[in-house]
């Protein structure tokens, strides 16, 4: 059943998506082909597919650690942004732009900034029992506005024709692609490591075990003496670290500089990826690949068929909606009971 729901949701997404295409006056089969198959039919497409899946999977792995313990970090977008800002800051302003230490330093800065941004809601939840859902979400907007301020103000490239963007990162601060023709770079290895680490943590480690007890039965966790606050801290910091690293990899990878829009919504999409993947490391890999394909397909039909760019978001929405609905109908049965206004009719009916 746990596996059935995501598969069912994917099928329903495709079915309803094609109805949707038809209603817009496009041949559904051709559009589906353009959406789901064409992007993967070239080497460049495959490279882009993995390039976009990588941050989604990475962030989802971090988020799932918290989700398993009922710690709801939905502010990965903000942690991603802060990671990108901190890493770019190091890349732009480190005294020696040719240092081999530059990338490792950016990695640490990105991870640290993501964690720091997640530490604020963690502290508030652990100490003052604030709702981490609200706090993480609001922190996202702060991060986005902070980025906007930087690229419009102090960090704007003086030689950039007044565009709101920073200078390009020095070569030593960039993750090299495997092949100059394609954009896929070595950050994919970080994601692979994160998946393995996440599996090890959730499936094998005692700490992960404690987190799962906190999530499944908070009273049992208290009975056994597992700290609730530890679950909150670990859950939020794991998500923050993963999102921060993803932000660093994005800035040092395909972007090479900061601009107001550095993420096409990876932080939010990763929440869907985590749930589609059933909070399981390998499920998340599949979920990330699917979500990445939605991004690519959305761009594809936008270019070839002139469909609106909102297509990606609509498909993401379909997917999450159908997943939640499938889960709901697996656990609950709906029954219709008609209310009756007239009491006498009821008595005679009996």
């Amino acid at each position: 059943m746990r596996v059935a729901a995501p598969i069912l949701a994917t099928i329903l997404t495709v079915v309803v998506g094609s109805i949707f295409f038809a209603s817009l006056g496009h041949d559904p089969l051709a559009t589906l082909y353009a959406f789901f198959v064409e992007p993967l039919s070239s080497m460049n497409g495959l490279s882009e597919w993995l390039l976009k899946a990588s941050p989604l999977i990475l962030i989802a792995c971090g988020l799932a650690v918290g989700f398993r313990a009922n710690v709801w970090n939905i502010g990965a977008e903000g942690q991603f942004t802060m990671g990108a800002i901190a890493a770019s800051g190091v890349g732009l302003f480190w005294p020696n732009p040719e240092s081999v230490l530059l990338l490792p330093l950016m990695f640490v800065a990105g991870m640290g900034a993501g964690m720091a941004w997640a530490a604020i809601p963690a502290f508030l939840r652990a100490r003052m029992n604030t709702n981490e859902i609200l706090v993480t979400l609001m922190m996202t907007y702060i991060a986005t506005l902070f980025l906007s301020y930087l690229v419009h103000g102090p960090w704007r490239d003086p030689a950039g024709f007044n565009y709101p963007q920073t200078a390009l990162l020095p070569a030593a601060a960039l993750l090299q692609s495997f092949d100059p023709a394609y954009r896929l770079n070595s950050s994919i290895f970080i994601t692979v490591a994160a998946v393995i680490l996440m599996w090890l943590f959730t499936d094998r480690s005692f700490l992960g075990y404690k987190m799962s007890v906190s999530g499944a039965a908070p009273l049992a966790a208290r009975y056994a003496g597992f700290r609730e606050s530890a679950a909150v801290w670990i859950g939020l910091l794991a998500g923050g670290a993963a999102a921060g690293i993803a932000g660093m990899a994005e800035a040092a990878g395909p972007l090479g500089q900061l601009s107001p829009q550095i993420s096409p919504g990876y932080g939010f999409a990763a929440i869907i990826v985590a749930f589609i993947g059933r909070l399981n490391a390998f499920g998340i890999v599949l979920g990330g690949l699917l979500m990445s394909l939605l991004f690519l397909g959305g761009e594809g039909v936008q270019m070839t068929l002139g469909l609106p760019s909102a297509m990606t978001r609509i498909f993401q929405g379909f997917l999450l909606f159908f997943l939640l609905a499938a889960d709901f109908f697996i656990f609950y049965r709906v029954r219709l009971v008609r209310p009756i206004r007239d009491a006498h009719a009821l008595e005679t009916a009996r």
């Binding site: 075990y209 799962s212 499944a216 039965a217 009273l219 049992a220 009975y223 056994a224």
Partner: peptide, 21 residues
């Protein structure tokens, strides 16, 4: 404890996982 499910044991976990508790 008096309550078995949810306090003395995690309902959705296996017995060996509950042994680790």
């Amino acid at each position: 404890p008096e309550e078995r499910l949810g306090r003395g044991a995690v309902p959705s976990h296996t017995l060996w996982e509950n042994a680790v508790l």
